[in-house]
Write a protein that binds this DNA or RNA. Sequence first.
DNA 1: ACGACACTGTGTCCGCTAGACACTGTGTAC
DNA 2: GTACACAGTGTCTAGCGGACACAGTGTCGT
Lengths: 255, 255
Amino acid sequence: MAAPDRRAPQDYLGALELLWGLRQPSSLGPKRALSVRQIAEVGVAIADAQGLAAISMQRVAAELDYTKMALYRYVRSKAELLAVMTDLAIGDPPDLGPPEDGWRTRLERWARLIRATWNRHPWLPHVSEWQASPGAVRPVSNDRIMGPNEVAWVETATSTLSGLGMSPQEQLDAVFLVSAHLRATQAMTTYGLLPWTLGLPHEEMLDRLRGGHEQRFPTLSRLAASTHDPAHSAFEFGLARILDGLELLIDKRMR
Amino acid sequence: MAAPDRRAPQDYLGALELLWGLRQPSSLGPKRALSVRQIAEVGVAIADAQGLAAISMQRVAAELDYTKMALYRYVRSKAELLAVMTDLAIGDPPDLGPPEDGWRTRLERWARLIRATWNRHPWLPHVSEWQASPGAVRPVSNDRIMGPNEVAWVETATSTLSGLGMSPQEQLDAVFLVSAHLRATQAMTTYGLLPWTLGLPHEEMLDRLRGGHEQRFPTLSRLAASTHDPAHSAFEFGLARILDGLELLIDKRMR
DNA sequence: ACGACACTGTGTCCGCTAGACACTGTGTAC
DNA sequence: GTACACAGTGTCTAGCGGACACAGTGTCGT
């Protein structure tokens, strides 16, 4: 079990062990100067300040005045470090208020609380994306391995939907639906950019393109002139539609 | 204009020029042996076969029997290459059938056609994610710069929603909503993994975790036993709810 | 015709990344 | 008190994106 060469068949098993506290530290040898927790905290601080791209083993180690390779005594790979950072940053699941408030209110609260958390740690929704790219054809995991905190958040969300005639599978699908929307609109909020424009930051470029493309893309061209806040709009619009759709289903099931 | 040191203020302007055909190739000097198109085609082939992680300037150049640096005569950065690859792989926008078929049918067709395209090029939805990570605090662009083909797809989608009492902004928000759901469920389809499990591929690990966590995560634990196809379920469930939500809005507006 | 010059593709280099491995020193268990 | 498991370090590799200098090539203006 603790045989060093008994490597996990997939990388993510390591992250699993770590996240769920299944890695037993030995009592032999010199005392450990650091802890996984401490390393992860530093990582979170760096990512908060400088973004996910600033996270490298070197950088994190330097912040702790240790060498890069020292971190590998605590964490088997960068992916593991990110997993722990993620669960740490997510933190404890929220209180959504009493069930009497109704599922819609509570689920919407959940959504806005996630949004708030992601505003504090804008890199959070991008962690899973990172994992997908450096890996091979099949990434380490599709979505990352979830730690206890993240699972607790999801559990909290699904609990708002129990007793409404939805199957557990449907409950999870619903939470996934909301969460995907949150993730998609988060980047817009963080960076304040249009999700889809003609891709035109420069007036000059805009004119040159618009000239030939107004008939080709009538709706989008008309839209380019609008002055709405796209991030706020997309988030609120989508959330309202999703909740409406869920309400329709629940009404049908409860009827 | 062509002064070499007049660098674009943001990197993405380069991609813009390239995608929209605003880069004028000079008539002087030796003939170009390659073309951006040709390079992008090779890139697409590699990404299709080996995933996005297999795309490196070195790899693409090797496939063409040229040196890595030669590609930089055609493309200013890897980000530009990916942008061109993306637009190439997306291809021409689809035919959604006559307007008489109704907005819901046509929009749903659009969604399934995107899904089909992404099944052919599973790396497509991950391109924007790639861009986010190696960049600085603020990525090259939130969503990537869109090429003509991608813009055309979006235009096609928004066109299904015109004349239904929705503002252009709302039309775009709606399309964004559908698209975000597609993107989120795509990875599940491609890799066939649960989006959210307890993160347990191994029975052994599952048991060890489940032991202590059944009361803590009742809904999810119950779910771990279910045998549904999570990818199909999440996609269909979410799409139905979104379209229901949109229908509700449209009904209200048209009443 | 011819030289100036803009351009293409190449080779070399840099700084960075994740991680493997061998090593020294340290602390505990027998 | 000694054997051994472990902690942290230094060195190394393979790979990445990309800057830059260079040699060869083709097209202009004269």
